[in-house]
């Protein structure tokens, strides 16, 4: 059994550097049970749809908004089409470097998105949000 303050993470960002940074920061919190990174949202979606997540739940997803082919919002829309039994095991945080009113408003229409986070991801913001889980 893992200690109960541990979490599994999925990071989706088309920038390899940003994936790497997220991985580092998440690992440094000491609350990371596992982490998987994806540079393509489609691959992440497939992973989520086919793999049974390990406890403890929920798994935390950090997804970038602006990505080619499937952007963050398209990912969330596709994710919300999955069976409730799957959706309920995840919590989504949307991350981006651009703070655009339209994006900010859009976030509220997706029930599975918990919060918007600014880039760069810092250990402070991450620790704060993990302490609430």
């Amino acid at each position: 059994m893992l200690p109960n303050n541990q979490h599994h993470f999925i990071v989706i960002d088309d920038s390899k550097l940003d994936c790497f940074i997220a991985e580092k920061i998440i690992k440094n919190t000491g609350k990371c049970a596992s982490i998987k990174t994806f540079v393509q949202a489609k691959d992440a979606l497939e992973f989520i749809a086919t793999q049974e997540p390990l406890s403890p739940l929920p798994v935390i997803i950090l997804v970038d908004i602006q990505m080619p082919v499937m952007n963050g919002f398209q990912f969330v829309e596709a994710f919300e089409q999955l069976p409730y039994a799957v959706i309920s095991k995840y919590i989504i945080y949307v991350i981006s470097s651009s703070i655009n009113d339209e994006d900010m408003n859009k976030i509220h229409i997706y029930p599975t998105v918990k919060q918007f986070l600014n880039k760069p991801l810092t250990s402070n913001t991450l620790s704060t949000l993990l302490s609430k889980e």
């Binding site: 920038s15 550097l17 940003d18 790497f20 940074i21 920061i25 602006q66 981006s96 470097s97 651009s98 703070i99 655009n100 880039k119 760069p120 991801l121 810092t122």
Partner: peptide, 14 residues
């Protein structure tokens, strides 16, 4: 804001 800030923020964090 995305294409110019994005790489910069990455470098700052790195």
């Amino acid at each position: 804001s995305h294409d110019m800030r994005g790489p910069l923020l990455g470098v700052i964090a790195a």
